[in-house]
Design a protein around this nucleic acid. Sequence first.
RNA 1: GGAGAGGUGUCUGAGUGGUCGAAAGAGCACGCCUGGAAAGUGUGUAUAUGCCAAAAGUGUAUCGAGGGUUCGAAUCCCUCCCUCUCCGCCA
Length: 423
Amino acid sequence: MLQVSYIRDNREQVLERLAVKNFKQPELVDEVISLDNERLISQRASEEAKAAANLSAKQIGEFMRAGKKAEAEELKTQTGNSKDYIKKLDDELAVIEENLYQKLILLPNLPHASVPKGITPEENEVVLENGTIPELPANALPHWELAAKYNLIDFELGVKITGAGFPVYKNKGAKLQRALINFFIDEAEKAGYSEVSVPLMVNEASGFGTSQLPDKEGQMYYVGIDNLYLIPTAEVPITNMYRDVILKGEELPVKNCGHTPCFRREAGSYGAHVRGLNRLHQFDKVEIVQVVHPDRSYEVLEDMSAHVQGLLQKLGLPYRVLRLCGGDMGFGSALTYDMETWSAAQQRWLEVSSVSNFETFQSNRLKLRFRNAEGKTQLAHTLNGSALALPRIVATLLENNQTDKGIKVPEALVPYTKFEWIN
RNA sequence: GGAGAGGUGUCUGAGUGGUCGAAAGAGCACGCCUGGAAAGUGUGUAUAUGCCAAAAGUGUAUCGAGGGUUCGAAUCCCUCCCUCUCCGCCA
């Protein structure tokens, strides 16, 4: 959520930034500003009335103590009359505030200056490509066929137990998963992230704090009986650990990592591109999260990007880094890098990580602050990234490393899998 | 699920209608003391927001959340949420 004071003081810039994000309702900006002006006037009126009433109440107390009954009674009747007036003012104020709030939460975060203007994924900027794209023989198989051939993943079994998008991993397929999780967690810890293991269901306040709610309500599984949501990413519980927290300056940066399954309804996305592991309702992911000083957040974003790239390099996967264009960015992000690996059998890039700087967009909602050098509270910046999401990594590992002898496990992973070949 | 207790500041914890943004202690910060430390001692120590150029100051709100009673609510009433203890169930 943007800060009203910022919008008020930087109207032109806000409009210009929203245009980069191809935001469809720029009129909201002026509506927010004018509602905020109303709010200020209304609030002032209410507060003045309350100040007067409080003063009278105090005087009545003094009269009572001094035994001046008559004076007290007289003041009582006077003050009693102001109650309705105050109530009316407060009701008005509440309406204005609600209005303001409803508009405010429709405004996405402002994109960073480096974000390219654009609407579609084609307009994302390719920042770099790394690694060599493997040439596969003509008879190369896509990962879902490899998974069947080597008995690694059973998609039908998942359909039977739960439904489409909930695969069952078996044998070396299951072990490969576990190896990747441990590898990713170990690498994150080496990079200074401390591991947390968090709840997989969150309450409404948490969903709101990281802005999944109300914007993306339909994308989360909802457990109505207890009013809880299954997490779509570990970002939600991990970042919400710091909701309503004022950190000491020296506690920054906060660095956490964690592995969780992630649950996504992915309503409305079916077809050839979601085949196999390409898009699932449940998948595993290791997430990295940082809470940092605002002056450092872009430097940290680069660090996180480098960390993710390091993982891909160690796994020997060719990848590219995209700087998302305004229109393709998430609602709360100020700058997002997507990392994609080349899926050699499918002949397409697959997104395996997304690293974002939210600046104060989340922390404003979370009330996540720190005490700055002047001793004042200030909103911190939050960042997070996948490091990494498993299924597409598994997909590309299987496809890219297939040989006539089987699938070669990347060297960095062998200490974790304890086997070198899937055959 | 049944029965009971309770939710107060960083923490412990007092506070059953007015002088309470809130005692006391601990912690923390700064100062004094000390060769240095401990002890001792003094001062300070919530958040948001309005007024003010800013600071000082001061208004408003906040004692789980929301509503009500009252001139006045941390304190009384109602609803909801949460936590703890015991019993039951259970990995």
